[in-house]
Structure formats: structure tokens, C-alpha cells
Amino acid sequence: MANDNISLQESQPVALGSESKTETELTVKDPTFLKQALLEKLKSLMNVQGEISLPCVPAMLDEYLQLVQNLLKTLGQTLTEDNFNNLKELITKGLVEGYKISPHARLLVSFLPAEEAKGLASGITINTKVLVESVADKYQKWPQIRQEPLFGSHPDAKVMKIAGELGDRETTKILDIGAGTGRNTIPLAKLGYQVDAIELTPAFMEKLTAEVNNQNLPVKVIQGDILEPLLRMKAAYYKLAIASEVLSHFRYTDQVRLFLAKMCDALRSGGLLLFSVFLAVDDYEPDNFVKEMSEVSWSYIITRKELQAAMEDLPLELISDESVIEYEQKNLPTEAWPPTTWYVNWAMGRDLFPISKNPPMELRWILLKRT
């Protein structure tokens, strides 16, 4: 997963020089020629500076280059071949570096006159830097910018259904991964289940901890990233592990594999793993551009073939695979649907594909059994 800290990485600037001008030896009275000279003078009196913030999606390199070129053209600047190659190198480097660190990294492309006193007549200087932001950083802002309840007022119906079939509540250990502010953790604990709740975002963890302490619930709150190798759980300890709206933040199938392997270690024999994941519809193969954009959109998409490969040789048996929207809409109380204003479009894949028709992906409940 992404680094939790925000860092800045700055590149060397690229200077875009203006065209050379020839001097006239004789007095010129031609209006067209003189107007052109005045336009050049006007450029020296004009100043511009600004910044474009671009998601670090390497597959968008050509589109980003065209965007910058169009902007420079509007400002009366023409790139030489060397200018273009230098600009391409800078943007490529920034996109690759930012994307490697976090899908939420931004490439900031800033521009200003090469020489302030000469304005646009001196050409344009381009600078790039990468602003890195993690999932935790993004979520940390939610309590200030979004209305409660952040993820819904009720627990997931599927979670409560599976938990209700586990047997003796006082001896049943449940692991809630990506617990958030406790939408599933707290209702489970109120029923008597012992819950270990893992949460990455400090603001969510603090709120969950306060609520647990206030109600004296049997919950242990752990701050951490489930994919972090140093985050270890008790072996063969849990009867149920849940990860609701967590795998949508993953980036690679190797992370899915790592997640499943860690769950195999943590679950008892016969224990259950319930998680939601965006699956591509049959016969649809997302390309690199779709994959990268799905990460940026918190909608990481995999195919069933990739999910099967991630499960290969692990002691896991598929119990069920069903639509999250269909199940939750049918089984949640009327007043609880939809959980949030953004939920339905997101779960249908429209955060990634903003179209009126059905996108070729869907959020699915996957239930696995530890054999």
C-alpha cells in the first residue's frame, strides 16, 4: 500500500525559448509588419503563471503531453523537438515515480516566463513535481468534508447474515479489516462477538476506539495496513474475517494473493472469509489504462481468472459469489438503502466509468471457506 507521508519530488525545469527575430535595416512603414512587431512587444508585457494537477496515470502520457502542448500553443509558444523530448522525459518520470508510490499521487506541472522582465517574449519555463498522498491521507480528510454517516448508518446485511450463522457468540472471534468508524464492528460487538478491528486511517481509528470504550464493547482496535508484512495476527484464531470495501484500494493481483494468504493463516479450519471486490464481467479484459484508472478511482478491478489465480494452492473453497447491490438492497431495511448518496454508482462501477449504461464491472460479495 501507499506510504502514509506526503512528500515532494522536484524535477529540473525545461526552458522553452521564443523564436529568433531579424532586425530591419531600413525604415519600415508596412502596417502588417509593424503590427507583428507590436504583437511581439505585447508579449514582453504579458506574464502568466499557473499549475496543472494531473493524476499519476502513466497510461495517460500522450494525452497529458497534448494538453500541455495545447496550453503552450495558446500562450504563443512553439516547442522544438528537443523541448518536446525534454518535456516528455520529465512528465514520464513524474508519472512513473508518483504512480509507483501511490495511485493518489498527483503530478503538478507549473509554468512561468523564463525571464520575468521579458514576459512571454522570453519563452516559458516548465517545472514538474510529484505530490504524494496515501489512502490514509485521503480518508483522514473525510470527517471534515463529508456528512455522517460516512459509510452508511447500518452494518452490511451480508456480514450480519454470515455472522448470525457462526454459533456461540461469546467464543466466536471475528476479524474486521478496514473497520472504518465501526459500521460493522460495533453491531457485531453489541451482539456479543469478540471483534478485532484493523483500521488504517488515524481519524477513523480514534473515533472507533472512543465508541468502543464508551460502550464497553469486546473490541480490540488495531491501527495498521493489512498488507504490511509486520502486521501479524494470531494464527488459526478467527472464525470469520470480513473485508468490506477494502480490496477496492488494492493495486496488484499479488496484493490480492498476499491478502488471501494472510487470511488463511489467521482463520481456523472451517473459518469463513467474506470480502467485497470489483469483478469484471465475463469476457471483459481490462487493459493497463483501465487498471490504472481503477486504482485512482478507488475501484480496483480484477477478473475472475485473476481471482482464481490468487487463490491457487491456498486452502480456500469458494462458497458464494453474488452482487453486493442486489443483496444489500434486498436485505437492508428500507431506510438504510442506499447506504450513502455515492454508494450505488460506485458499486456499479460508475465512479470508474461515468456512463449511463452498465459498466463492465460490478462489486461482488465473495465468501470463501478455510479448508
Rank of each mutant, 00 (worst) to 15 (best):
T22F: 06
T303A: 01
A203P: 01
F353Y: 12
L90A: 02
Q140S: 13
D82T: 14
A261D: 05
L26W: 12
I198N: 01
K93I: 04
G349D: 03
A336Q: 08
L87P: 02
T341L: 14
Y284D: 04
V221Y: 00
Y99I: 04
K43T: 07
V28C: 10
M348I: 06
P155I: 09
I177L: 11
K129M: 07
Q66Y: 08
E199G: 02
E133R: 11
T92V: 00
E317Y: 15
A163W: 00
L95S: 05
I198R: 02
E170D: 11
E326I: 07
A157W: 14
E81Q: 13
K129I: 01
A236R: 12
K305D: 04
I366C: 01
L87H: 04
E165V: 11
E199W: 02
P229H: 04
V212L: 00
E312N: 12
D156N: 15
E81R: 14
L240V: 06
F289D: 11
D225N: 10
E10C: 10
K234N: 12
A15Y: 12
Q36E: 15
E206S: 09
K190N: 15
L314W: 07
E211F: 06
L71W: 03
R350E: 08
Q9A: 12
S323C: 10
I162W: 02
Y237V: 03
N331A: 09
E97I: 05
T24A: 11
S356A: 12
S320G: 09
N345D: 12
I101L: 15
K129H: 14
M361I: 08
